[in-house]
Amino acid sequence: MKILTASGERPDYSKEKVAGSLRRSGAKEHVIQDILKTLEKDLYEGMSTKQIYKLAYKLLKSQDGLTASRYKLKKAIFELGPTGFPFERFIGAVLEHSGYKVEIGKVVQGACVPHEIDVIAVKDEKKLFIECKFHGEQGRNCNVKIPLYIHARFQDIRNHRSQKGENVQVYNEGWVVTNTRFTKDALQYSHCVGLQLLSWDYPKYQGLKDRIDHLGLYPITVSSLLSGREKQFLLSRDVVLCMELLDNQFLLDQLEISPGRKKKILKEMEELCNSGMAYHEK
């Protein structure tokens, strides 16, 4: 049976891939098998991967809400839009909890022109200059034009620092981070010029998803209890992470959420924050 991917391709349906994605979210094996059996009854020729995912999420949510939240992580990252700024904040938070000192949206002087850098992260002798490329929908991968452009900006910054006598080999490192994927040409060019890349599943075992799961740094958009309007309200108040909502519980009062529902939401936030390392160590 052929299905339709976000990029327009039509591969055969693979229950192994569906099972793998459920397994990576921490779903138990008997739950996975139940979902696969139900899915097979509802599949039809040309069904989109988005529809398959939506149905799998619904089935998983009915059995295990916490695992369902982890399962929708990729979609939750897309929901950080549309401006892309929450994604920059999110990437900054991931690095901050990895021991970096972070600045968002700082203007840095280059040899030719100044550049506004999405995220600057400093740790020990290393300074990362990071450009975030956020896409609001699947299927829009970063092609070679993106690292070409970012590398030119990075080189201008390095040239300025070299003129000042700084050790640019140790001190500066250019990164491109995206919530989707990089094309083959983008990967090849970046590897050639020494530009670092971070995407949903790249580098292998160190991609965005792996880092989020490892640290338990889930965005509030993974919540299965908050409405879309409530999520946007919190994002507009610079609350991007589940743990940040735990530190700013008064915002739920501003949303006039009832005490009973507030308790459930905060419990969900706590479980998500605590589940990252526990799941990673399984």
Rank of each mutant, 00 (worst) to 15 (best):
I150M: 05
E230P: 05
W200K: 14
V170A: 01
G228R: 07
D210T: 12
Q163C: 00
Q249Y: 02
S223N: 01
S199A: 15
P259R: 00
D238T: 01
R211W: 10
D201E: 14
Q188G: 12
K263E: 01
K263Y: 01
L217A: 10
C242V: 08
Y189P: 15
L255R: 09
H214W: 11
H160C: 07
I257C: 01
K184F: 13
L246R: 08
I220V: 06
G276R: 06
I146A: 14
L226V: 03
I265Y: 02
R181Y: 09
K262H: 11
E166S: 04
D238A: 05
N159F: 01
L197Y: 03
Q254H: 02
R237V: 12
Q249D: 01
K231Q: 03
N248K: 09
P203T: 14
I220W: 08
P219L: 00
L234C: 15
D185E: 15
V193G: 05
Y149L: 03
R261I: 05
V177I: 04
V170G: 07
E268P: 02
L246G: 04
M269P: 08
C192N: 14
L241S: 15
A278I: 15
L234G: 15
L226K: 07
T180G: 15
D238N: 13
D185C: 13
F182Y: 12
T183A: 12
D201H: 09
R229E: 13
C273Y: 10
W175D: 02
G207S: 14
N248Q: 09
N159T: 10
G194Y: 11
V176S: 14
R261K: 07
E166G: 08
S190L: 11
I257F: 05
N274D: 11
A152G: 08
E166W: 06
T183S: 10
L225C: 02
L251F: 08
G260Y: 09
D201C: 11
L245V: 05
R158W: 00
R161G: 07
L246T: 09
P219D: 06
L195Q: 10
V144N: 04
